[in-house]
Amino acid sequence: MDLQIWVEGLYIGSVYALIALSMTVVYQPTRIMNFAQGEGFVLGAAIGYQTIGVWHWPVWQAGAALILLAMAMGYVMERMVMLPVQLSGNRFAWIIATLAAALIFQSLFNLPYANVTFGYFEFFKTRANIFGAHIAMQKILVFTFMVFAAVFYDQLLKRTLWGRSIRAVAHNNDTSIILGIPTKLVIKVAFISGTVLIACAGFLAAPVIIVAPASGLFFTIQGFTAAIIGGVGSPKGAVAGGLMIGILDSVVRSSLGGTWGVFSTVMALALILVVRPNGFFGKRVVGR
């Protein structure tokens, strides 16, 4: 099969992996799958389009605006999701809270950008040649960013006290408090850093992917699928799952046609849920 298809698959897979990874960042301390996570991707793309595409800001300035706005969005998102969870005391309140957050952000994006796709020009206009497959440098940039982010987060979880605290908060919030861990801060930081991560992904990928104001939920579902296949909560799983469905999508699309792409990833999800419900890198859930 044509190598080009596989290389494209790796690239689109790295986008899905980034989304899955940012969902993992939120999931780790909270055990919440944030269905509003994809809105951060749209935010990043929209900021890139507006600042660089329309206003012609230099990249560093656009990047600064991106990080500030993404932090603000992460903070707001944390309140939108955690307040209902804390106030209702219902274990499943997050499902409706994150969906509501997704729809609210989606309508906000639709106000100024109703008929826009957030494409803008690539930072590097060169193409790389990998064994005969041509790929835009911008796509390689996205892939590299994904690898760095995944390795960084994996090491943070394993090697730092903050990472261990994140896992502790997930396991038992009360016990974390009586050890002096500021659990609410850990959760806020997770939402904020997760949103910054996914907004950076949207910002970098917007020139080479189609992002519309209402695309958030589509990307959320792709990231969700990747996370489940790889194993929820595992950074390695997010990367593996993302790359797998990226390649699958790309290969099926080129041989059977566009509409079969998403169908095949959903089928892969269904298959995994039957054969290996915890995903490839997921831990078996240990009862308390």
Binding site: R164, R167, A168, H171, N172, D174, T175, K283, V286
Partner: peptide
């Protein structure tokens, strides 16, 4: 019930 972190 001790509440140690079993996965740590």
């Amino acid at each position: 019930g001790r509440q140690i972190f079993p996965d740590h």
